[in-house]
Amino acid sequence: MTTLHPGYNFAYLDEQTKRMIRRAILKAVAIPGYQVPFASREMPMPYGWGTGGVQVTAAILGEGDVLKVIDQGSDDTTNAVSIRKFFEKTAGVETTTETARATVIQTRHRIPETALQEGQTIVYQVPIPEPLRFLEPRETETRTMHGLEEYGLMHVKLYEDIATHGHIATTYAYPVKVNGRYLMDPSPTPKFDNPKMDMSPALQLFGAGREKRIYAIPPYTKVVSLDFEDHPFEVNKFDKPCALCAAEGVYLDEVILDDAGGRMFVCSDTDYCETRRAEGHRGEMLGEAPAFVSREPAE
């Protein structure tokens, strides 16, 4: 445990605020998929950087927790590094990149490839919590629709996809129905990750800072992706395995290599990819680092 920065309360937020957020979380867990309003605070980062997720993480974090933060599956991009440092500084908790070791995982738009376990909590950063928003701009109306379970409109969106593209072209923020009741936006995760939400042993919490909403999926809750009988839900498929670790059946990112059409597909989950490479799996484009490059990153 690193030394706590003096002048901050544990995990930045004051205790009253954390209690308020915890109450919202409890309500959200009690009504799976229901968007609970909460008094979102100003955070020392701009909206869109995960202020909702950070507040949820701050409210649930304890001194013994091990935190992992990912951004598009990656542990080492700006957003992930900043949030990890933020909690190192204000809460002094241990951080990790290993999915299996983490007790709290804050994520922007991915669910790790390593299956989550009981006792783990995953916190999603949500930009727009209302799945019906782009179809129905009135908040009063969408609340009525949730209240009366009128979700036909969501299928209008999927119909439009098929009519325009020949298949359901929504690839992220793919709407799901939670526990047979509430329609929910799984935040802009790729639809590849939707099946991982279903009956997950981990607690899933969603925080939207700007929109001031918290919602949740308790462990072992049914999560069904919407579809049509004759156009069933399908996850993204990739032609090739990961170019670095040869993993199949994982979500891949496209990396442009040059301006002549060169590209490679690599695991979006960097921790998963590194673990596999350490185990000796080799993708077709994995090279050897020159001898002067240290193989172990400095801790």
Partner: peptide
């Protein structure tokens, strides 16, 4: 045209 059908539970695109 299809919205009402979907609103009353029709889930077959065809």
């Amino acid at each position: 045209v299809g919205e009402r059908l979907m609103a009353v539970g029709d889930r077959h695109y065809g």
